[in-house]
Design a protein around this nucleic acid. Sequence first.
DNA 1: GATGAATGAGTATTCATTCAT
DNA 2: AATGAATGAATACTCATTCAT
Lengths: 216, 216, 216, 216
Amino acid sequence: MSVNSSQNSPIPNPSARTTAGERARATTRARLLESGRTLFAEHGLHRVTSHDIAAHAGVAAGTFYNHFRDKAALFREITNEALTELTQSLEAAAESGTDYRQGVRQRAAALVGFAGENRELIRILFSRETDATTVQSDVLQQMASRAAAVRKSLIDEGSMPVEIDPQVFGQALIGMWARVVAWWAEDTDRASREVVIETLTQIQLNGTHPAHNDPL
Amino acid sequence: MSVNSSQNSPIPNPSARTTAGERARATTRARLLESGRTLFAEHGLHRVTSHDIAAHAGVAAGTFYNHFRDKAALFREITNEALTELTQSLEAAAESGTDYRQGVRQRAAALVGFAGENRELIRILFSRETDATTVQSDVLQQMASRAAAVRKSLIDEGSMPVEIDPQVFGQALIGMWARVVAWWAEDTDRASREVVIETLTQIQLNGTHPAHNDPL
Amino acid sequence: MSVNSSQNSPIPNPSARTTAGERARATTRARLLESGRTLFAEHGLHRVTSHDIAAHAGVAAGTFYNHFRDKAALFREITNEALTELTQSLEAAAESGTDYRQGVRQRAAALVGFAGENRELIRILFSRETDATTVQSDVLQQMASRAAAVRKSLIDEGSMPVEIDPQVFGQALIGMWARVVAWWAEDTDRASREVVIETLTQIQLNGTHPAHNDPL
Amino acid sequence: MSVNSSQNSPIPNPSARTTAGERARATTRARLLESGRTLFAEHGLHRVTSHDIAAHAGVAAGTFYNHFRDKAALFREITNEALTELTQSLEAAAESGTDYRQGVRQRAAALVGFAGENRELIRILFSRETDATTVQSDVLQQMASRAAAVRKSLIDEGSMPVEIDPQVFGQALIGMWARVVAWWAEDTDRASREVVIETLTQIQLNGTHPAHNDPL
DNA sequence: GATGAATGAGTATTCATTCAT
DNA sequence: AATGAATGAATACTCATTCAT
């Protein structure tokens, strides 16, 4: 038996008047998520226990399970949320772009901006570690699809140099983004935001339009 | 494949005749390392127990600890060994190179060649799912140092374009290499070896000598 | 089905008009009992949680404890209630009986009839899987006392054959009743009600009046 | 991963010379089984934890799992073993029987004898409690099959009285046996072994051959 | 050295019960 | 009275590691 209660309703109906209990519940849930973010970012998924998260959130061990089926569910929620935000940033950047080179730069800026403002999430999303079976791979796959779309347009334009294979280039971009962004988010004093954006932009442009590679 | 067992054991004097016991010990040790490689590559570090490795090697559980302080030590040894080999490949490639562009291509070829011939090691070294705080980061740090040396020479040459920051570019190269090589090692039918080498080479050259980016 | 809610609650004066609150309370209590019956019959005592019962009854988890000290109290109440009803059936049967053999048959009929009409309760009372040290044994002890009374009368009559020990025979009857009735209640198509009654009657009569064992 | 070692080899090769380790292992295993028997008989399956059993056997909690997959496995082994012994007793009794009435008496004697010598096992096998999904039902089903064979022969002989349904009678016998034997094993001073045997025998014979029901 | 039985700390998860609202 | 979030003791099970043989 054992009924699975209202565990997965992260979005409470905003039009309903919330009771004190509902607010308390939402607060606890939010604290658990926040604690999860902090601890996962610092120690990684499998060095953090559900007890650790509960203790960090100031609740009893059992309370964790009133809000999340298990540790993986909490982790998934954190990463899904992060991915959604990041995706939105990138899409917003893509829409506002005028020409191709502007688009590349704006997506780089969106990624780097997100990294600067969500350093914990970045460390969770792009840290090595995490079971292949969980969310991480999804995140990278989505980034790969995004890169695929870019590649596609380049091939159509005929501006991808013949020596560079689109598939391999897509993987290279993903690896580059993940690594650079994680490295920078660890300590944002390592480089200025502008330098990071500019470097990522140039590398991508060089891989696609080497012929025009003159100062903008 | 290399069964370099000189770590952490009484350094065998190669000129002395080894006793039967010494040889038996070395064999057991080698079998444990080989089993570790196989199992870690297939299941990842924390899905494999010390019992699993011992059983796969055909020895008792306790024997594991006659050869390695703990599971992390075995893992570290595997990764260090792999890194040493990889480093040697890269150095050999560097030495044989005549000019800079040849060097870049030869190092890419060495990396890709190593990946093709040591797919298990690549999966271990570059799989996500390794404790970021322990061994993996060592590996990556060493790759970073290597990239730093490259950068240094570029700066000295004055051939790094101003828009590209050497530090960020170093990280980007590491991320790119790790991702591409892990992706390709998973299934070497995804692209021909030559295409992978050429693409990595071009990306790196474009980042450093965009002006000369004409067919070799 | 009987919703006898007089246990453990402020004894309602039947002559006084009950307030709306009192009636609401009684309804909640009855719903919890009914849910307990349903769920215990289907899943057994320790596969059902107090939350399950509350949820099935459509009330909050805490409400359960406004009505029952704990889960065992609810279970005990269900079984006591059932036993009371069953006892009453048996006593009514005994009273209406004219001679001994009629009485035996009528009690068997009452037991089987009760089983047919209260299959959930039978499954709860006679299922294996109940904590032997707690409630169930009470039920059986009461049945044993009942059998003892029967035996007593037989001994007084002198109609118990010498080879059959009254105590042992009492236990045998209890075991027989419990087993047959539980077996039949699981699926009443296994035998007609009349056949079950007749068989139980004959076995009991054979054990007490073997000499007269000719067709009635 | 995680290899399932040699857990289920209760019968060590008797021709092999046993090492000290093997003997120690067998001893620990036997102690765990013995502790399980004692504790299950006293408290029932789900009131006893694996820790309880380990502590009673004087070993660490983890040692339990070196010998049994889980608590259910230990329980199953105890009950299977008990059932095997009991079955053998009953079969031996059946073979030695000369005529039908002797056979009935001898099986009753075997059952009661087993109960007297294995009081803990009887309490485990026939206590109410125990999940329907585990062994208990098997035990009773086997007893039912045994009773079915008896019934069959009676029907063939034409000696089952018409008022008694064979199926119902089979269930009645099972219930009777289980109850009487469990009751007697709890305290063997409640009746002499002979009285119990004689009573069970007479009840069974009365149900099948009421016409001949004269002293043997 | 090798063996493998034993260890016990660590971790996830459940659920009866309490209590502030 | 009813609510339902929170509690935390209880329990099962794992696995790296030790050590007597």
